[in-house]
Simulated scan of single mutants.
Amino acid sequence: MGKKILLVDDEPFQLRLMQKVLNQNGFEATTASSVESALEVLQNDIQDLIISDIEMPTIDGFDFRKRLLEDKKFKNIPFLFHTSHNKEMLIDKGLALKAIDYIDKNTPVEQLVAKVKNILATVVEQNEKSIAELKSVADKLNLKNVPQKKLKLKNFEINIFHKTYQNHPGGDFIDLIKIDDRYTFVVLGDVMGKKWGAWFFSFTFLSYIRSAIRLCVFDGNLSVAKIMQRINQVIHVDEFLNDIYSTLSLVLIDDETGDISYCGASDLPLLKYNPASQEVTQYKSKGLLLGFFKNGNFNEQSIATTSNDRVYLISDGVIDFEAKGVKKTDLNLFLGSLKMHLNQNLSFNQITESIFNSQKYQVDDCSLIQIKRL
C-alpha cells in the first residue's frame, strides 16, 4: 500500500489532476474540496502527507494549518502548501506555521512527484534515525516491559508470547509479581497509541501498578477489584498521563487452592479452556479504561480451575488484522483458531508458532499469556 496523501483544494480540476498523477506513481491520494471535508477525512484516516491550497472559501489554508497544529493527532503530519502565489510574505507566513515547503501550481507534474517522494523519504529517514536512537537508549538502560525470565510456581505454569509490530515496540506491557509461595499477580495492559509513544508511557503505568499491588498487599488487601481501583485513582489525577489511557487485565493466582481472581479495565475477555469439555468460556469485565473516570466501575470474578485447565489473557493485537487494506477485529476468529489448536493437544509454543508466526497481516503488537493448571 502506498503512502497516503490528502489533497485539499476548492478547484475540482486541480484536485482530479493531482490525484490521478499521484495515484499513478504509487501513492494513495484522497481529495477534499474544503477544510471541513479535509478534517472529516483526517478523523477517519490519518494521512502521511497533506498538500493544501491557500485561498479557499470559509477557511483558508493558513487557518487549516493552525487547526492542525492545535490538535496533537494531526500536528506532526508533514504539510505542504500548493499555491499559485509566490509572494515572499505569504511563503514566510506558511513556513512560520511549520509547513515543510511550498509547491507552485505551475510546477510540472514530474517535479511535483519527485518533490513529494523526496519529502516522504526524508520523513522516513528521520523517523528511522529517531527510532535507532531510542532503541540505543532503551538497550543501555535495559528497559523492558515484558518479563525476560519464566516464573516457577508449584501448581501452575505461566507462558508468555509477545510479538512487536514491524520490530517497533508498542503499548503492550506484561508483568508477573510473585508475592509469596501462595500468591502471584499476572498483569497485561495496553497503552492507547502506537509504537514508541505508547511504549514510553507503558513504564509509567507499570510503575503505578507495581506500587499499588505492593501497597495493597502490605495492607492485607488481595482484592483485585480494589487494587484496580487504587491504580485507577492514582492515574486519574496524574497530569503527566492526561489523555493517556490504558486497558488492563489483572489476575491473582492462588497456588494453594487453584483459584484465580480476575478484574479488567476495558480489556478483552479472559478465556478459560477446559480440556474435558473442549470448550472455551469467556469472562467479561465491566471496568472502564484506566484513568478515564475517578471511579472505574471494576468488578471481580473468581474462577476455579482443575488439572490441565488453561486461562488466557490477550491484547487487542491478537484479534486485529488487515484485510484488503482495511483494519478488522474478530475475536471469534481467534477463538475458533485457539480452540482448534487446543483440541489437538498442542503445546503453547506450537500454538503461537502456528497462529502468529504465519500471520502476514499483523497491524499492532500482540500479547498472549497462558496460565495452565498442572
Score class of each variant (00 low, 15 high):
residue 1 M to K: 08
residue 4 K to P: 02
residue 20 K to G: 02
residue 23 N to C: 07
residue 28 E to F: 11
residue 30 T to D: 03
residue 39 L to Q: 10
residue 40 E to G: 01
residue 41 V to K: 13
residue 43 Q to K: 15
residue 46 I to Y: 07
residue 47 Q to S: 13
residue 47 Q to F: 08
residue 49 L to K: 00
residue 50 I to M: 11
residue 51 I to V: 12
residue 54 I to S: 09
residue 63 D to Y: 10
residue 67 R to A: 03
residue 69 L to Q: 06
residue 71 D to I: 01
residue 72 K to Y: 09
residue 73 K to Q: 13
residue 75 K to Y: 08
residue 77 I to L: 09
residue 79 F to R: 13
residue 86 N to C: 00
residue 88 E to W: 06
residue 90 L to K: 01
residue 91 I to V: 13
residue 98 K to E: 07
residue 100 I to T: 07
residue 100 I to R: 07
residue 102 Y to S: 10
residue 102 Y to A: 12
residue 102 Y to W: 15
residue 106 N to C: 00
residue 119 I to M: 01
residue 123 V to P: 11
residue 136 S to K: 13
residue 144 K to H: 14
residue 146 V to E: 07
residue 149 K to V: 09
residue 149 K to I: 02
residue 152 K to N: 05
residue 160 I to H: 05
residue 161 F to Q: 03
residue 165 Y to H: 14
residue 168 H to A: 06
residue 169 P to C: 00
residue 170 G to H: 03
residue 175 D to H: 13
residue 178 K to A: 12
residue 178 K to E: 12
residue 180 D to C: 08
residue 181 D to H: 14
residue 184 T to H: 04
residue 185 F to M: 06
residue 186 V to S: 09
residue 186 V to D: 09
residue 190 D to Q: 04
residue 191 V to L: 05
residue 192 M to C: 14
residue 192 M to K: 13
residue 199 W to T: 02
residue 200 F to W: 05
residue 203 F to R: 03
residue 204 T to M: 09
residue 204 T to A: 09
residue 205 F to R: 02
residue 206 L to F: 09
residue 212 A to F: 04
residue 213 I to F: 06
residue 214 R to K: 14
residue 217 V to L: 14
residue 219 D to L: 14
residue 222 L to G: 10
residue 222 L to Q: 13
residue 227 I to K: 11
residue 230 R to T: 05
residue 234 V to L: 10
residue 236 H to F: 15
residue 243 D to W: 07
residue 244 I to W: 06
residue 246 S to M: 06
residue 246 S to Y: 10
residue 248 L to K: 02
residue 254 D to W: 05
residue 255 D to I: 08
residue 257 T to F: 00
residue 258 G to W: 01
residue 259 D to Q: 12
residue 260 I to K: 01
residue 267 D to K: 08
residue 267 D to E: 15
residue 269 P to H: 06
residue 272 K to Q: 13
residue 273 Y to P: 03
residue 274 N to R: 12
residue 284 K to P: 02
residue 298 F to R: 06
residue 298 F to S: 03
residue 301 Q to C: 01
residue 301 Q to V: 06
residue 302 S to L: 10
residue 306 T to Q: 14
residue 306 T to E: 15
residue 307 S to T: 13
residue 309 D to S: 10
residue 310 R to C: 10
residue 311 V to N: 12
residue 312 Y to S: 11
residue 316 D to F: 07
residue 316 D to N: 09
residue 317 G to Y: 04
residue 322 E to K: 10
residue 323 A to L: 14
residue 331 L to G: 03
residue 333 L to S: 11
residue 334 F to N: 00
residue 335 L to K: 11
residue 337 S to Q: 12
residue 339 K to G: 02
residue 342 L to W: 05
residue 343 N to V: 04
residue 346 L to Q: 14
residue 347 S to W: 00
residue 350 Q to K: 12
residue 353 E to Y: 00
residue 353 E to L: 00
residue 357 N to M: 01
residue 362 Q to N: 02
residue 367 S to D: 03
residue 372 K to A: 15
residue 373 R to D: 10
